[in-house]
Design a protein around this nucleic acid. Structure first.
Lengths: 139, 139
DNA sequence: CTGCGTGCAAAGTATTTGCAAACCG
DNA sequence: CGGTTTGCAAATACTTTGCACGCAG
């Protein structure tokens, strides 16, 4: 289940600690973008001692390893979500504004054209907000 | 020059203060996304006393009036840019990562489809980064 | 064993709030 | 003049850093 992600860590010679495994499992157990504090609160039950800085450090590490993607939400909090795209194919995320569930999608030739208004396109960040099917049924 | 924007304020019964006019003119004088501190430093020359909170408050006000658009940059700072689209047609921004110049563009039917992966699309935020023509020549 | 990983405390940084004084309309 | 707007100081909130101890490999 979590092997793909743990492998990514080992490949780069990072250690597999209980906390790191727990963080990845936490993401796996919910299809959501999560912020450091939520994860911390969720895992404090499991670990008697658990520091918030440790969560921050690991999330940042994971995002550098291609395990998580990081976004800045308008509420000024950091959020991270599991990168489920098997290969590292470029993709986008759609977030449910009610429950936070995240989906991924590929907009094929979104910017196949490499220049816009004279700007040479280097990269882009696309965030789509919506309501997921589960939340639509509820309301 | 700045009338369109000042009118938007007056329409909503907000007062036209020297500071507000100066902020709008500051944006007009540079085609850039700017963050509160830059504006503050730029205008302190002009006003002997000028508080940073005042900048924050006005930028937020302007964005609510449709004068500016607000984005959260990955560096955790707020940035605002003039909304030049005459009508309030939905548009996107492309930002030069060297000089900060911002261009606008319209990707017509970017999400004409109203659902993605079962999510009902409410809105989206697209930011493209690139190098503007001027900066390309320089380097 | 060795160096990476972690908890804890403290610092850092961007933004927001409270309030009295100043000012637009 | 009355209610906005503002400066200043202080508070807030999230994230980062330093350092000594602990643990994975």
């Amino acid at each position: 289940m979590n092997e793909i992600y743990l492998n990514k860590l080992q490949e780069k010679n990072f250690k597999l600690t209980p906390r790191r495994i727990a963080i990845i499992d936490f993401f796996l157990s919910r299809e959501r973008y999560l912020n450091p504090e939520i994860i911390w609160k969720g895992l404090k039950k499991k670990f008697k001692h658990l520091g918030l800085p440790s969560i921050y450090r690991n999330l940042e590490l994971f995002s550098k390893c291609g395990i998580l993607t990081k976004i800045q939400m308008p509420n000024r909090k950091l959020y991270y979500g599991l990168c489920k795209a098997k290969d590292n194919k470029h993709h986008h995320h759609i977030v449910c504004i009610k429950c936070g569930k995240v989906g991924e999608f590929f907009e094929e030739n979104l910017f196949e054209k490499k220049t816009i208004n004279g700007f040479k396109v280097l990269n882009h960040f696309l965030q789509v907000e919506g309501i997921c099917s589960t939340c639509r049924i509820k309301s």
